[in-house]
Design a protein around this nucleic acid. Sequence first.
DNA 1: CCACTAAAGCAAAGGAATTGCTTTTGCCCG
DNA 2: CGGGCAAAAGCAATTCCTTTGCTTTAGTGG
Lengths: 191, 191
Amino acid sequence: MSRRPMVRPGGRSARVQESVHTAVRELLAEQGREGLTVPQVAHRAGVTPSTIYRRWGDLEQLLSDVAVERLRPETPPEDRGSLAADLESWAEQFLDEMSSTAGRAYIRDALLGDPDGSNAGQCSAYAAEQLDVVLARASVRGEPTPGVERAVDEIVAPLMYRILFRPDGLDAAYARRLAHRALAAAEEPPA
Amino acid sequence: MSRRPMVRPGGRSARVQESVHTAVRELLAEQGREGLTVPQVAHRAGVTPSTIYRRWGDLEQLLSDVAVERLRPETPPEDRGSLAADLESWAEQFLDEMSSTAGRAYIRDALLGDPDGSNAGQCSAYAAEQLDVVLARASVRGEPTPGVERAVDEIVAPLMYRILFRPDGLDAAYARRLAHRALAAAEEPPA
DNA sequence: CCACTAAAGCAAAGGAATTGCTTTTGCCCG
DNA sequence: CGGGCAAAAGCAATTCCTTTGCTTTAGTGG
């Protein structure tokens, strides 16, 4: 879990949390991250700055929390009938969402204000979950599948690495190529 | 290139740059990053804070510059006689250096204060360079080799992804497994 | 050797971050 | 249903980081 304290789920804490998160999202959308400050967020959210400092520590940890929330997938991956098609389309969509300017900013924020690594871990868990659904479906169909860990190595890791370290030259074709490698790994002995 | 301006080599600028970088490294070693501030670095380096703000912008970009410098490999990878051995030992060493507490901190810093992505790109280039040396050597020996890009996907990306997003359960055996996958990719058609 | 320019020093002003104390509010127990 | 307890928010003062205009120093080229 994050540094964020347990929030009493219906009380004032929850309302404050909600309004602060909303304020961050709105301000990010309106003006981007340039010049975003805690006092500014506090004012928009109708709270005092010290409340934010006490609950989140600093702007980066607050942004990290908002980012993780925003990176959570909203729907399970669509079923396209075969593992190949499912992996391809998931990889393409993942790349699409994550490599956008907004997506990259959220990833950076999630990593950035994350002292104990729990937010980053959460992001990774989201991706693994989605892949797990796809692989389980294929398994039910009787298709050979790679393990989730292998799929993460072959698809998620290269995409994320390139998004973070070499944002150029990424396209859907590359994502599809990665999906096929993961597929090829399904037939090998589990190395 | 970074936001860091071209420094006249040999002049006062170079001396300031040197003393500031040294101050950062010393303070990081002594007290870690907790409570590290620009004025503190400036004092240790014997310059005024405004000098640092004017040249680097803020603490994060300064740390990013120092981190990239520190992540530069100092020696070409050792020749162990075969591609398999070279890849294995390089992957192990890479994991070792990067997954340490200090290594992780440097990676995070490098990514963090990097508005245009040039510092992250530099880190990636370092790894690609090292791999390129290993692969070229194998090529000369007549061994089949994967392309550098493929080796990056199979070795560097998974290691980096896990270091950043899931720091648990990383060990030398995993690094070796990745090296073997890259090796296996050498015989496939270049997908 | 002198002029020109880039970078560093200096100092003041503005604003973010921190913190002790008070007040509110939600929750639990009698 | 009412009183007390504890957690979190508000408030305000203080600290010090950050910014910025101006001056001074130092390196470069004519």
